[in-house]
Nucleic acid binder design. Sequence first.
DNA 1: ATGAAAGCGCTAACAG
DNA 2: CTGTTAGCGCTTTCAT
Lengths: 342, 342
Amino acid sequence: MTSDTNRPLTLRDVSEASGVSEMTVSRVLRNRGDVSAATREKVLAAAKQLGYVPNKIAGALASQRVNLVAVIIPSLSNMVFPEVMSAISAVLEDTELQPVVGVTDYMPEKEERVLFEMLSWRPSGVIIAGVEHSDASRAMLKASGIPVIEIMDTDGKPVDCAVGISHRRAGRQMAQAILKQGYENIGFMGTKMPLDHRARKRFEGFTEALAKEGVEIMDQEFYSGGSALAKGREMTQTMLERSPDLDFLYYSNDMIGAGGLLWLLEQGIDVPGQIGLAGFNGVELLQGLPRKLATMDSCRREIGEKAAQILIERLGQEDAGNSGQIVELSPKISFGDTLKRY
Amino acid sequence: MTSDTNRPLTLRDVSEASGVSEMTVSRVLRNRGDVSAATREKVLAAAKQLGYVPNKIAGALASQRVNLVAVIIPSLSNMVFPEVMSAISAVLEDTELQPVVGVTDYMPEKEERVLFEMLSWRPSGVIIAGVEHSDASRAMLKASGIPVIEIMDTDGKPVDCAVGISHRRAGRQMAQAILKQGYENIGFMGTKMPLDHRARKRFEGFTEALAKEGVEIMDQEFYSGGSALAKGREMTQTMLERSPDLDFLYYSNDMIGAGGLLWLLEQGIDVPGQIGLAGFNGVELLQGLPRKLATMDSCRREIGEKAAQILIERLGQEDAGNSGQIVELSPKISFGDTLKRY
DNA sequence: ATGAAAGCGCTAACAG
DNA sequence: CTGTTAGCGCTTTCAT
């Protein structure tokens, strides 16, 4: 160790060790302005030798700039969100910006707390999942004066920009595809979570499109907690015992759909002949299943990338002209092996 | 909107709006010291009315305290790490401390960058996955002067504290269990990643324990990238075609194990009669599989909780006496339905 | 119970 | 190319 006190090193320490003014040290460490090669070397050597780590707190306060982007998502255990995260990270990697994650557990009050906490660090921008927020949250976002990109969902009025898909439309599209293939006795399975607005919207769009053709959902089942794969099995069995006439099962996510698929195959049921299946999300896992589950891509990667790009533009020019824009991506249905195709 | 400039609000704004000194406003907002109920009300009302969000940057600089805990993990797409994260979050929830995640993608240089970046925000502590770090990283950790908890792995010399399991021992235990059940022709499948030290140690422990009984791995296969479930299938097929005499397959993680299991069942192969299987991690997904894969719990929840607890203790008392401690948890084998039990 | 002064560690803006 | 002077917005400390 180089110092014997426990005090973290400051610019001044580097300044003294190198015999260069604090200001110049600061310039070297930030590659700013013109500094002679000689002094640069001296400073760098001293900094490295001491093991100096700059204090961003002080730097941020002085410069009034914080290269942090608050990314606020409902959950980390959904795989969907880590994927969005990594798309965001990948794009921000080329910039000075650093994503910082906050998790809300789908709870509006927690979202409020997390948002408050993150905004108090004065980030350069916010990327937040969903367009449903408490009044307080919306007020904070507006008052923050920084770019706000709402992601995943475009069914609603964003505070600023939005990038996502219309889950209502996604639900409708799937319903239309299912009807078109001649299925008529349709069951639905999904999460109980009333706060998962996107799942709710898909369900609403789904039933709405069915209704338009005079079809009603024959049976439905909701779950919460536990292993999604196992829940998918259980619910499928329960529902089929209760409603043996079902010829199609629409799952609100791929994991429960995969569970249902595995169970049906074990029972020797003909999929998609006897019963068709579809999920939602297009998760990687489906690649390893005995049959490819029909699903719909949720465009997570594109959403993450686009959101990060918009943010970068907004930060680049004061008025990038993209304030208020809504980017609606178009998810595509993948028929897989569980949705008949005539 | 209340203000027409775009400048974020400051304590001074609240002070002026409420007619109370900045200092007292500060005290109210932090519930510090004695403030009369009357002024408290006034201040709170003004703050809320304006939509004031405190500036933690300034607060942190002035108080020299930052209630952030840097949590550095290799990946978010492994499910294992989000689980550790949420265990940490759950424990920290009861404190002022806030976890902040950094992802290294299993790359030492990225770990170095992320660590540097995070340390420059002067967090109160660091929780970091693994005990293998570059010299520079170790130096930074030591020089930081804050508690450092290395998690997941106890095979090595931690910088400060460590909480985890011995992956070498885990590999040995599984080997012993397999041999004990009479399996002799053993194949191994795992990731190619040379930087996943824990997977490597499990493999080493595994082969070492086999060797002690005069057994050698009959075949092995490594993969990288792609859907683990699909890779598990492919590798299993490849390996079995190449080495049809195999009677046991040890997978370095549950996902590829699950893929292998699904493939074997489809082929009508008797599991575990003809071929036994085991994975590692004890992931929730296994609950929904047709057979329960034998596996070994990696104690992620306990690790996260314990790490957070140790950190809290360390931060509580200057010398909590737990500096330098190593907590080795004991993972247990779950035989499931894919490892014979006589 | 409240206020005034000083300064946290750094950088913007200017001088030289 | 390098140094000096002022703060950034808050909290600490010490008065009152």
